[in-house]
């Protein structure tokens, strides 16, 4: 297992290096000279020269890149132009909020998507299957920011059942925190539930045709036991790995969800940074998200390794 993980980490290194080049290169896309923008209206030559030295703009690009990587490796991703806080500190503050949203969304997705997928596969070709497929495809086609707006209108404005927006830390008031997060988590979870449903259905359909399921039925086992113990357990492997890979979708979806429900998380941070031309924060977020995705990828492989006995024996 350790050797397997080490091999996966080594394979990921070139990808991480390329991501760092890409993230560093983003600032080179900026039209004009960023130092002139930083120097303000006066554009005092001394200030410009000081800033050029400070940000190593007089150095060749590869030297600038290496200095940036050195900083990134020690946790220094620069300073936010807007708040004057270190980018790492800002991300560290906002990430737990998004993780809470992502975990709750994932719970919604798993609770809706997996049973719907099993039901749809077991009842293949029936009206239940048809309805589950239509609902799943609709879930994939609804823009989640619109779903959020409509839910605010119905649940918060018209029915006044849940708060329309905002965030309460779980440490402050756990119940209110969960209540405030319910709508955003549902919005974020719907598209994932649809993806999970389609994959569960497809994995279950494959397994239900297999010999061991036929044997289990021939032995006279109860259908419920055949489905849950024999079929679902074997269909679970691809579902577990897919769930780990949904991390990217969760983070991307959080950008819009947090914007609509005014949640002060990672997604809102990136949007605020974009509009305030806080490029160091945008770079930091892209880098951290990509690294997070790679870690989740490695964990997904590890889960596959643990769940698949044939792979373990190799």
């Amino acid at each position: 297992m350790l050797a397997f993980l080490l091999r996966r980490i080594v394979v990921a290194i070139p990808t991480v290096i390329l991501i760092s080049i890409f993230v560093f290169g983003l600032q080179k896309l900026l039209p004009g000279d960023p130092i002139l923008a930083m120097a303000g209206e006066e554009r005092d030559p001394e200030v410009i020269e000081f800033l050029r030295e400070k940000y190593r703009m007089n150095d060749p690009v590869p030297v600038q890149y290496l200095a940036w990587v050195k900083g990134a490796l020690t946790g220094d991703l620069g300073i936010s132009l807007r708040t004057n806080q270190p980018v790492t500190e800002l991300i560290g503050q906002k990430l737990p909020v998004t993780i809470q949203l992502a975990v709750m969304a994932l719970i919604f997705a798993l609770v809706i998507g997996i049973p719907a997928g099993i039901l749809s596969a077991v009842k293949k070709g029936t009206i239940t299957d048809y309805i589950a497929n239509v609902v799943a495809l609709s879930g994939l086609s609804i823009p989640n920011f619109w779903l959020g707006i409509m839910l605010i209108l119905l649940v918060a404005v018209n029915w006044q059942l849940l708060p329309a927006s905002g965030y309460v830390p779980p440490g402050e008031d756990l119940w209110l925190s969960i209540k405030t997060m319910l709508m955003p988590a549902f919005v974020l979870g719907t598209a994932l539930a649809a993806t999970l449903m389609r994959h569960t259905r497809s994995a279950m359909l494959g397994v239900l045709k297999s010999d061991y399921v036929r044997t289990a039925r021939a032995k006279g086992l109860a259908e419920r036991r055949v489905i849950l113990k024999h079929a679902f357990r074997n269909a679970l492997t691809p579902i577990v790995t897919l769930t780990a890979l949904l991390f990217g979708e969760l983070i991307a979806g959080a950008v819009l969800t947090e914007q609509i429900f005014t949640i002060p998380g990672f997604g809102k941070l990136v949007v605020d940074a974009v509009f305030n031309r806080d490029y160091a924060v945008v770079q930091g977020i892209v880098l951290v998200t990509a690294l997070g995705f790679i870690v989740m990828n490695i964990l997904a492989d590890a889960a596959y390794f643990v769940l698949n006995p044939r792979l373990r024996k190799q």
């Binding site: 990217g248 979708e249 950008v255």
Partner: peptide, 11 residues
């Protein structure tokens, strides 16, 4: 490795 929408927003 960079989520689609994050990449599009950054670009």
């Amino acid at each position: 490795a960079v989520p689609f929408l994050i990449l599009a927003i950054a670009l």
